[in-house]
Design a protein around this nucleic acid. Sequence first.
DNA 1: TTTTAAGGTCAAGCATATTGACGTATCCGT
DNA 2: ACGGATACGTCAATATGCTTGACCTTAAAA
Lengths: 148, 148
Amino acid sequence: MLDLKNPLSQQQAMEAFFFGYQAFTAKADEMLERRGLSRVHQRIVFFIARYPNLSVKELLALLGVSKQALNMPLRQLLEMHLVESVASETDKRKRLLELTAEGARFEQALRREQVKLLERVFAEAGETAVNGWLAVNLALGESQAHTD
Amino acid sequence: MLDLKNPLSQQQAMEAFFFGYQAFTAKADEMLERRGLSRVHQRIVFFIARYPNLSVKELLALLGVSKQALNMPLRQLLEMHLVESVASETDKRKRLLELTAEGARFEQALRREQVKLLERVFAEAGETAVNGWLAVNLALGESQAHTD
DNA sequence: TTTTAAGGTCAAGCATATTGACGTATCCGT
DNA sequence: ACGGATACGTCAATATGCTTGACCTTAAAA
C-alpha cells in the first residue's frame, strides 16, 4: 500500500499522477490538434457544457487565465459556430456562453474518448479504486478552490 | 458512486482531475517561480532523483520533449550546480545525470510540499481512497506507457 | 572504416501567456 | 440624473516555451 513517509512511495505517487494526467489528456489533445485547436479550446467547451449559461467572467475564473488569453481561442470557437454568446436578460453587460449543436457534439466527442479510457481503467482497477481516485481528486481540488 | 454512463458524472470526474492536478502542482510552481525556474526544471530534478544516473536520452523520453527544449533548462540546472553530468564509464557518449547535494535538497523541498498536500487529503479521503487513486493513475499511465 | 548513436548548440518560427492601456456598454448607489 | 464600478472586447509589447531543421563533435558498432 501507499506509504507517504517513504520517499520512494512519494516519487511513485507523483510519477503516477504525472503520467496518468498525461495519458488522460493525450487522446483529446490529438483530436484537437487535427482541427487546429488546443487544450484551452477543450477547456472552454468543457466548462460551457458543464455550466450552461456561464458568463465570460466565470469562465475566466474557472480557467485561471487572463481575459486576453481567453480572447483568441474563444473568438475562434465563436467564429467556428461551436459556441454562442448571448447577452444576459437580467444584466446586459454579461455575455452568457452556450454550445451550439455542433459545439455540443464536438465537446462530447472529446469527452467520450477520455471517458473510454477511464472505463478501461475502471475495469482494470475496480470500482472501489475509481471511487477513491475521484474522492482524492475532489479533495485536492477543494484544497485549492478558494485561493483566489 | 461514480457512474461513467452518466454525462454529469463524467464531467464531474474530469473537472475533479483537472482541478486536482492543478492543486497538486500549484505550491511547487510557486516555489519554482520564486527561484526563476519553471515546472520543467522540477520534472528534470524529479526524474533524476527517481532514476539516478539517468542518461539524457532517457530523460528526454520521460519528459516527452525535444532535446532543444531540454537544453536550456538543463543547462541552467547545471550552471546552478543543482545537477551534475558525468560521462558514463561503459559508454562515453552518454552523460549520466545526478543531483548535487544542493540539488537533492531542492528536489526534496518541492516534493515535500506536494506530499504534505497529499497527506492532508489522505486524512480526509481515507487509505482505501488513496490506494484507489494511485491504482487508477498507475493504470492510466500504463495505458500510454508504450506509445512512443 | 563507414555508419550509427549520444549529446550539444544555433537559428527561425510559432503558439501561448503575460501586463498595460483604452474604449464601450451597462448597472448601481447616492 | 450623475459618477463610479463592472463586464467585455481589443490592440500592443513582451516573455517564454516549444517545435523543426541543420550542423558539429565524440564515441560506439557493424
